[in-house]
Design a protein around this nucleic acid. Structure first.
Length: 231
DNA sequence: AAGGATGCCAACCGCCTCAAG
DNA sequence: CCTTGAGGCGGTTGGCATCCT
């Protein structure tokens, strides 16, 4: 099976897997454009990268998602939307493809069962169903004097541990979404939202965002305006 | 038992971002 | 600044397995 450009497509053979694994073990991840040549594979760079990330990479977890993983996935999806790579990043051993596939299957099942339920409910009473609300990261502008920027965590790249030590990297997910609704103040006029802290300071999704890897934040997910690097 | 329907998963495609020249 | 190419992402598809009628 070959594409128009002469590169092989379709399912990977055991032999190809071995070649790719050896190549990555030898040269490391990255430089995917060199991988087909190095490994002696008649595959495009993207295909090699995908095969490695989704299948060959060590520590990839196979099999069903457990209850905790599903719960976390649902919470993260509510927070992030279809940002599969970000969600997968918080599910050790799971790939974005896994998460995406699982979610699609999960949603199909949900819709299916929902339709079933609806048929039954319709016979009983008229029900109003709220569509699933996805909370997406919202761009915001922070001034230099913003209290949020004054906080200590600005200088620490890993912010799983807050000043008060209330949120650790181990249990950050336990509080995910726990109090956002309570403290959220949305401003629909300029697409900003803030979250009030205990002492009245701007806590800006304290539990959630400070728990999510900061490279996520600095990559512009919150507007790309905030620079967390030291000058 | 047969064949159509459905589910699942690996892989592909097209687009976007970013850095280098 | 513009162009180009690599890396990365999310959406979609194809094919195999399983289930259902």
């Amino acid at each position: 099976m070959e594409g128009s450009s002469g590169v092989r497509k379709g399912a990977w053979s055991q032999f190809e897997d071995d070649l790719l694994r050896d190549c990555v073990n030898l040269h490391g991840e990255g430089k995917w454009h060199l991988v087909p040549q190095r490994a002696g594979l008649n595959r495009c760079r993207k295909s090699c990268r995908l095969r490695w990330l989704n299948y060959l990479k060590p520590n990839i977890k196979r099999g069903d998602f457990n209850e905790d993983e599903v719960d976390l996935m649902i919470r993260l999806h509510k927070l992030l939307g279809n940002r599969w790579s970000l969600i997968a990043g918080r599910l050790p051993g799971r790939t974005s493809n896994d998460v995406k596939n699982y979610w699609n299957a999960y949603m199909r099942r949900k819709v299916h069962s929902h339709n079933k339920d609806n048929k039954i409910k319709k016979q009983e009473t008229k029900s109003t169903v709220k569509p699933h609300e996805v909370i997406k990261p919202i761009p915001r502008v922070l001034t230099k004097t913003s209290p949020w920027l004054q906080r200590k965590f600005i200088n620490s790249p890993k912010v799983g541990v807050s000043e008060e030590g209330a949120t650790s990297s181990e249990n950050w997910w336990e509080t995910l979404l726990a109090d956002k609704e309570d403290n959220a103040v949305f401003n629909n006029n300029n697409n900003t939202c803030f979250f009030g802290g205990v002492h009245g300071e701007l806590n800006l999704w304290n539990e959630e965002l400070t728990s999510i890897d900061f490279d996520f934040v600095t990559q512009g997910e919150l507007g790309g305006i905030v620079n967390f690097q030291n000058p």
